[in-house]
């Protein structure tokens, strides 16, 4: 690629570093626990969406079953912790590795499918996972697992008094997911993935091993999402199948990337920064009536944004830039 590309990448990295630093300072000014909670969720969804974006955005394999990996991350961590006393840090890694292995195992048959057949297969496999966990007695079945409180410690990744450690972990995870995306964007994998997305036949004929590059994207994506799942489980201190593996999670992971700009570096972060606070605020300010007004507002906004900006909010920036360039 040319000089412009290199310059853009350097600029992206600097912007990200500045944003991360600003975010790290935010808790100094924001003491309100409710707002901190929203920030944590925003960062978590940004991280999840960024990871989802690797497979679905860059590589073009739209998955609406990523809740499976999220749930696997959450369950691996908590089962290891509650049943065998393994520290969540190891559980988190184990969950990530298991999710990546499963993603590759599933990829083997799945990546032969195209279009809607693939999307439905991903929904269905996550749904099978959900049903199995709901019926798995040893893993708590539909009741789920309550994580025993052992006091605040970094070792056990449990904090009751303050939410700040969770905030910093979520920030770190989000930064990691962003950095991995940034790094892969310019690697041979990044180029392969875009080639596979645009035209798999042409890519294959030029020597890209389409199958392997899809597998790579799936593994990275699943690993990061599973780590996110492990985090979420520790954060809530309670998990059940529906709340970590439900279909709505797959959609919630995809939504920020789609609204922000699918297959772009900044899309997921931007989408999450707007969507998640919006979701939480509508839920707490107008959702109290229990009559679904929050759903109406939330749904309407999704419809409007996706119709008005099919390429995501990121396209607003590039549009203004393009205008400036033509002047």
């Amino acid at each position: 690629m040319d000089k412009n590309f290199a310059a853009r990448r350097r600029r992206d990295l600097i912007i990200a570093a500045v944003l991360a630093a600003l975010a790290a300072l935010a808790p100094l000014f924001i003491k309100d626990v409710y707002v901190q909670n929203i920030l944590i969720l925003t960062l978590m969804y940004a991280a999840l969406s960024q990871s989802w974006n690797i497979l679905s955005g860059y590589c073009g394999q739209i998955s609406l079953g990523h809740a499976l990996y999220f749930g696997i991350g959450a369950y691996t961590t908590e089962l290891l912790f509650t049943k065998f006393g393994v520290l969540p840090w190891f559980g988190m890694l184990a969950g990530g590795v298991i999710a990546a292995v499963i993603a590759m195992g599933l990829g083997y048959p799945f990546f032969r499918l195209r279009g809607h057949y693939f999307v439905i297969a991903t929904i269905v496999i996550a749904e099978i996972g959900l049903l199995l966990f709901q019926n798995w007695e040893w893993a708590g079945a539909a009741m789920g697992i309550t994580i025993p409180v052992r006091g605040d410690s970094w070792l056990k990744f449990q904090f009751m008094r303050s939410k700040l450690p969770y905030f910093y972990f979520a920030l770190a995870l989000c930064s990691l997911a962003w950095f991995v995306t940034w790094w892969l964007e310019d690697s041979k994998w990044g180029f392969w993935w875009r080639a596979v997305k645009d035209n798999p036949e042409a890519a294959e004929s030029l020597g890209v091993v389409v199958f392997n590059s899809k597998m790579g994207a799936a593994a990275v994506s699943a690993f990061l999402v599973a780590v996110g799942g492990a985090f979420y489980a520790q954060f809530l201190a309670y998990i059940d199948p529906e709340s970590v593996m439900g279909f709505q999670f797959s959609l919630l992971m995809a939504l920020p990337a789609v609204l922000g700009g699918i297959g772009t570096l900044w899309g997921p972060v931007l989408g999450a920064a707007i969507l998640i606070p919006m979701t939480e605020l509508t839920r707490s300010y107008i959702g109290g009536s229990g009559r679904g007004v929050d759903l109406i507002v939330y749904g309407t906004l999704i419809v409007l944004i996706s119709l008005a900006l099919p390429q995501g909010l990121v396209s607003l920036f590039s549009r203004t830039k393009a205008k400036r360039a033509t002047r």
């Binding site: 679904g292 929050d294 109406i296 939330y298 749904g299 309407t300 999704i302 996706s306 119709l307 099919p310």
Partner: peptide
């Protein structure tokens, strides 16, 4: 992104309809 736009605009619609039904 025609596919994604269709998925999410109809998904948003589904949420609105559910909300209206609840309301």
């Amino acid at each position: 992104n025609a596919g994604m736009v269709q998925i999410f605009s109809t998904f948003g619609l589904a949420i609105v309809m559910r909300g209206l039904a609840q309301f």
